[in-house]
Design a protein around this nucleic acid. Structure first.
Ligand SMILES: [Mn+2]
Ligand SMILES: [Mn+2]
Ligand SMILES: [Mn+2]
Ligand SMILES: [Mn+2]
Lengths: 213, 213
DNA sequence: TTCGGGCTTTCGGCCTGCCTAAATCTCGGC
DNA sequence: GCCGAGATTTAGGCAGGCCGAAAGCCCGAA
C-alpha cells in the first residue's frame, strides 16, 4: 500500500494518541479525531493492518507496529518542523500554524525538510513544546504531568501545551504562559508565575498544560 | 466542481501552452504533458467545460475561459513563487526546483504565499525568467523571440529559459547563461557573450532560450 | 471523391476514500 | 446468567481520477 495523505493522517493520529497517555486508541476515537465515519476507519484499519503498519484484533484497539511507528514519526516530524518554521520565520502565531502544517506535512520532500531543519538549527520541539522526532523516529522524552492533575504546591516548567484548541493557545499567550514558563500550582486552576503574579486558568487550559514532574 | 490538484494541473498546463505561442492546446498534447491517457483528458475536459473553466467543441482544441484563466494564473503564480523561494532561500539550484514546486503549488495557503511573496520582495519572474502573475492574474509581457529563430547578428537579453529539461538548465548554468544574460546570436547555435567569448549551444538549448526582440 | 491513419471519444473497469444503514459483537449492570 | 447500549463491522453506494480497448470522427493524400 502506498503512503497517501490519508494513510499519513491515520498513522499520525494513532501515534499522537499514545504520546501523553498509555491507552491505545479505539476505532471510534480515531474516527472522531479524523472527522470521518467509524466505518471509514474500519476500512482503513484493514489496509493498515494488511500493510503491517498497525496491529488490530476485531473489536479491539489499534497499535502501531515498529514500521507504523516509523512512518508516523516521519509525519509528526514534518508537521512539527513546519509549525516551528511558520512561527520562527514566516510570521505566524502559535495558534495559527496547525491547519497549514496539516496540509504541508504531506507535501514537503525530504530535501526541503532537511533544509528547513538546518535553517532552524535542528530544533528539538515545536512552538507548543511537542517533541520533534529525529529522522529515525527517536526522541528524548521527559517525565511530565498535567497541570490539572498536579498537586497544589507543585512547581515546574511548562513542557508542552496541547495545540488542539487555538483559543486556549491565544488565552495562554495573553497570560504570558508558554513552553519554558516556570510556574507553581496553587490549586486546580490557579498558578503563580515567577514574578509572583497569579493566573486563574480555565479548566480546559489547565488540562492542556503539561509540566515537569 | 471543486478545485483539486488534478484540476489545477490541467488548468496550469493549458495556460502554459499558450504562454509563448498562440495555438491552443489539443487533448492529445495535454495528455502527453500531463502523462495521462487521452481518455482521461476527455473526461476532465467535460468537467472543466461544465464548470465554465474552459471552452471545447468536440474534436476541437481547448481554451481557457476568463474564469479558467484566473484559476490557472493562481496556480502558475504559486508554482513560480515557490521556485523562486527555493532558489533564493532554500539552497536549491534552478534545475532542481520544478518537482518540488509541482507538489507545493497545491499545498500553500494564500497567507503563506503572501508571506513568501513579501519575503522575496514581490519578484516579477522566477529563476527561469518566467513571469509571475499578480494575484489578479495580470502580468507585464515583453516581446520575445526564440534564440533558435533569431537572425544572425541579433543582439538581445535572455528573458526566459524553458524549465522543461533540467539537463539544459545545468548546461546553460555551466556556460554562465541565464535570465538577464546579454548575448549576440552568431548563427543558429552559436552566441557571443559580453566578454567576447563564444558559446556553441545544443539545438535543444537554443530552442529553450527566449531573447528580447 | 475516397480512404485510411491519427485523434478523440465512449465504454467498462479499477482503486482510493468516504458515506449511511443495517447487522453484529462486547461488556457492564442487573 | 441475561440484556441492552454502545462500539464495531458489514454491505451497498458515490465521487474523483485514472486505465485499456473499441468505436467514431476528421482531414490530408492520392
Ligand atoms: Mn494532514
Ligand atoms: Mn504543534
Ligand atoms: Mn502540480
Ligand atoms: Mn520555472
Amino acid at each position: 500500500m502506498s503512503t497517501t495523505p490519508a494513510v499519513e493522517d491515520y498513522l499520525k493520529t494513532i501515534y499522537a494518541h499514545t504520546e501523553w497517555q498509555p491507552e491505545p486508541i479505539t476505532p471510534s476515537v480515531l474516527a472522531a479525531r479524523l472527522g470521518v465515519a467509524p466505518s471509514s476507519v474500519t476500512e482503513m484499519v484493514k489496509k493498515l493492518a494488511g500493510a503491517g503498519l498497525i496491529t488490530h484484533v476485531p473489536y479491539g484497539p489499534l497499535r502501531l507496529t515498529p514500521a507504523g511507528f516509523l512512518g508516523a514519526s516521519a509525519v509528526v516530524r514534518r508537521h512539527r518542523l513546519v509549525e516551528t518554521w511558520l512561527v520562527r520565520e514566516m510570521g505566524y502565531d502559535w495558534d495559527q500554524v496547525h491547519d497549514e502544517a496539516e496540509i504541508l506535512e504531506h507535501a514537503l520532500s525530504d530535501r526541503l525538510l532537511e533544509a528547513i531543519d538546518v535553517r532552524l538549527g535542528r530544533p528539538g520541539s515545536d512552538p507548543h513544546g511537542d517533541l520533534i522526532p529525529a529522522a529515525d523516529g527517536s526522541l528524548v522524552r521527559v517525565p511530565a504531568i498535567r497541570l490539572a492533575d498536579a498537586a497544589p504546591g507543585h512547581a515546574g516548567t511548562v513542557l508542552r501545551i496541547s495545540d488542539r484548541d487555538p483559543a486556549i493557545l491565544r488565552d495562554l499567550a495573553a497570560d504570558s504562559i508558554g513552553p519554558g514558563s516556570a510556574l507553581t500550582v496553587l490549586e486546580s486552576c490557579a498558578v503563580r508565575l515567577p514574578g509572583g503574579s497569579i493566573r486563574l486558568l480555565a479548566p480546559d487550559a489547565a488540562a492542556s498544560i503539561w509540566l515537569t514532574k
